[in-house]
Amino acid sequence: MKVSRRDLLKRACLLVPAGAVVLSRRLLGAGDKAPKKKYSLKGHKYTFIVDTRKCIGCGACVRACKLENEVPKGFFRTWVERYTIGKDSKVTVDSPDGALHGFQELESVPLTEVAKAFFVPKLCNHCSDPPCVPVCPVGATYQSPDGVVLTDPNYCIGCAYCIQACPYGVRFKNPDTRTADKCTWCYHRITRGLLPACVEACPTGARQFGDVADPDSPTAKVLHSERVDVLRKELGTDPKVCYIGLDTEVR
């Protein structure tokens, strides 16, 4: 079969890019598509680690969460707080619009008067003993077998009892769905082997997420090497969000 130079170039133009696509998918994985392995609900011990020393208050996590989960305006599944402690020990806390657009310089406390300042990202603690779960009258709020606290928006009747029961103020009544809403650790992502959107978006690695059931996971290593604390330990809710460098002023 005689192949003209023109035909050869034509076939090459078609085959080379197609081959490149196939090869790149093989080598780099399928991007954001789900891994083929079926997700098992058992055997997980998810933990979220917030390193307050690394957070720069850029708000990328808040924006990513808003986009990923279509969080309505004025409400937050995650937010960042800024603590400014003056030399006179006066504590100023703010979180303008949940830090959706980051932070401006604080005008009320002159920079020269600041003893220390830091940012604290907040999200649902996915407590092991969650106060929001037993109060739900219809069982719409539940703890999944892999330990994540979720709310079924199709079953929730919007009584707000769970919102009142949460001591961390992370729940809200979604004005669009008229049901209780909160952070799910991006359950739709983690069950596909992906990271929560906020973790993915954090430019400094202040947010880390992983399964500490695997002792070799990076999260387990951090958990076992760093001194961590949880919010409002005295309540006995046993939060699964651990903080590195947590200050006593943070509630």
Partner: peptide, 22 residues
């Protein structure tokens, strides 16, 4: 008060036994 009053009877028909409200 309920966001979904049409689901109010779920409190009676499919209650959560741990809930004071149900």
């Amino acid at each position: 008060h309920l966001g979904h009053p049409e689901g109010a009877f779920r409190i009676m028909f499919t209650p959560s036994t741990t809930s004071a409200m149900s």
